[in-house]
């Protein structure tokens, strides 16, 4: 039965059965990334905006970038490629005559930073609870999963709005609320994978060698979760960025004079008919960044598929 099933899949399986050449190390993640052009572009884009965000202060000091807080009331809402006394505004200026490109780059620091910190916190909560639930099982598992179910039933967006309104909108509160409403998916996947890994032979072998629970969980189970978590985390990063943008858009996230992409969108909304660039570019920044993380997630998923992986490398190897 299984024989005929695999035979009907139109894939060359001979590559799978071939032994790896002696002395050759299995291909690293970097080689796999270079082999997939779309994923490579996505990764380069993310690296580029991260570098731009990190070096924003330096660029202002060197005069490459106009200071994002300098207002110029004579040059308000000017279109892209407008030259004022401050310099050339590649993407135009906003309602206070500030340079849009500079604000976008400084906004990237907050938008990406909030996303990254949120993912780290929700990842830590989700992975820890998922590992405990999956490894211990029994009562502990029931309790944690019940908690996940209960919180999954909450209307997340409305609840986030109310909590932030009550606690006062600030970067810290935004990160905490986003992290506390987004750990459940990570916990669920971690638990499911841990549950199946706990039954595996190498865990049994480690146990019979006398390894402690902590050692088994951290050194044997966690490393095997890394690829699944990579996919999940990059998908979640995109979702968190969209949530942050939405909350900031409603005025419940980042507060002026700080700039995040979502806040810039909501500020530009009043000038929709007269200054299209104010809304277009911040939105494009959000869309492209989310697109890049989603593409990377797709790549990470397909690289975990051994058939795809072999095919990807075979296509690039000179014959």
């Amino acid at each position: 039965m299984s024989q005929t099933d695999t035979a009907s899949v139109p894939v060359d399986l001979s590559a799978l059965e071939a032994e790896p050449a002696p002395g050759r190390r299995p291909p690293g993640m970097l080689a796999l990334l270079v082999a997939d052009r779309i994923a490579l572009f996505a990764a380069l884009f993310l690296v580029l905006i991260t570098l731009a965000a990190l070096s924003a202060d330096l660029m202002v000091r060197w005069g490459v970038l106009i200071d994002p807080l300098t207002q110029n009331l004579l040059g308000r809402n000017k279109p892209p490629m407008f030259a004022s006394k401050l310099g050339l505004h590649l993407l135009g200026t906003d309602q206070l005559g500030r340079d849009l490109l500079a604000r976008l780059i400084f906004g990237a620091r907050i938008s990406l930073g909030v996303g990254a910190v949120t993912i780290v916190i929700s990842g830590l909560i989700g992975v820890t609870l998922g590992l405990i639930a999956g490894y211990r099982g029994g009562r502990v598992d029931d309790f944690i999963m019940r908690l996940v179910d209960i919180q999954m039933g909450f209307p997340q967006m409305l609840l986030a709005l109310i909590i932030i309104y009550a606690a006062g909108p600030s970067v810290t509160n935004l990160i905490l609320v986003l992290a506390l409403t987004r750990w459940m998916a990570i916990a669920r996947v971690t638990r499911a994978t841990t549950l199946s890994l706990r039954q595996s032979l190498f865990v049994e072998a480690a146990q019979s060698l006398g390894a402690g629970h902590l050692r088994i969980v951290l050194l044997h189970i966690l490393p095997n979760l890394s690829s699944t978590l990579l996919i999940l985390v990059s998908l979640e990063f995109g979702r968190v960025m969209l949530s942050e943008a939405g909350l900031s858009f409603l005025g419940m996230g980042i507060q002026p004079p700080d700039a995040s992409w979502g806040l810039m969108l909501s500020q530009g909304r009043s000038y929709l008919g007269t200054a299209w660039w104010l809304v277009t570019f911040p939105g494009l920044a959000i869309a492209l960044t989310t697109l890049a993380t989603n593409l990377l997630a797709g790549w990470a998923r397909s690289v975990n598929d051994p058939i795809y992986r072999k095919r990807l490398l075979a296509a690039r190897r000179p014959r």
Binding site: L242, L272, V279
Partner: peptide, 16 residues
């Protein structure tokens, strides 16, 4: 993939 990466409220503003 592009569709699910675009923020709906941005798309709304662009459509308007």
């Amino acid at each position: 993939i592009f569709g699910l990466s675009v923020p709906p409220f941005w798309l709304a503003l662009m459509l308007i």
